[in-house]
């Protein structure tokens, strides 16, 4: 016990002795057992509404949907599975929220706009990168990329700069970035998930 701890102990109020009186809480072994009991799924319970004859209970464990079950929209018109899907369709459920608000494509840029975009980028690529052009012309960076490409010289310059930045990374960051790239490469189905 060092000096600081002993001073602290003396200044603090003494701890009262632990109470020996039993207090009944709601928790008891019987109640706990009852609370933890897993009740059968409603589909397993026989009620007066259940079929009286032998029947099959279809209650598969929850799992990610398999692509082997073709969604209804992808079935050809003459496929018999349409009736199955329609039979199990739920009544007018609201759709889940979108990840980002759906938007209509405007197609507002004209040929002269695109020509100006090309000129700006070719004239001063450092001043007019994709993001700024996209903001200026109110379109996506992908569209800017479709309309005009940076010059070979600019691309090689930027590549060199990226290379320089990557060289300043330590071992941990380099490994983490490589791992991330590897994981990203599997999203398209290569990782078998």
């Amino acid at each position: 016990m060092n000096a600081f701890t002993s001073v602290l102990r003396r200044t603090l109020a003494p701890v009262p002795a632990v109470s020996k009186i039993q207090v009944r809480n709601t928790a008891s072994s019987r109640r706990l057992t009852k609370a933890l009991r897993v009740h059968p799924h409603p589909s397993m319970i026989l009620t007066s509404a259940s079929p009286s004859a032998d029947h099959i209970i279809y209650n598969p464990p929850s799992a990610a949907p398999t692509p082997m079950m073709t969604p209804e929209i992808f079935l050809p018109k003459n496929d018999a599975r349409h009736s199955l899907y329609q039979a199990q369709e739920k009544a007018a459920a609201t759709l889940p929220p979108p990840l980002r608000e759906p938007y209509e494509k405007t197609y507002h840029l004209t040929e002269t706009d695109m020509q100006r975009m090309r000129e700006l980028r070719a004239g001063n690529p450092a001043e007019w990168p994709r993001t700024r052009l996209a903001k200026e012309f109110n379109c996506s960076t992908l569209f800017v990329g479709i309309v005009c490409q940076a010059s070979e010289q600019r691309i090689s310059e930027m590549a060199k700069r990226t290379e320089h930045i990557k060289n300043t990374w330590g071992a941990k960051r380099t490994a983490a970035r490589a791992e991330r790239e590897k994981r990203r490469a599997g999203w398209g189905g290569a990782d078998g998930l």
């Binding site: 073709t70 992808f74 050809p76 599975r81």
Partner: peptide, 13 residues
């Protein structure tokens, strides 16, 4: 990806 698999893996009855 799963939607595309659903399309490509259609199997007639």
């Amino acid at each position: 990806v799963n939607a595309l698999k659903g399309w490509y893996l259609y199997s007639p009855l």
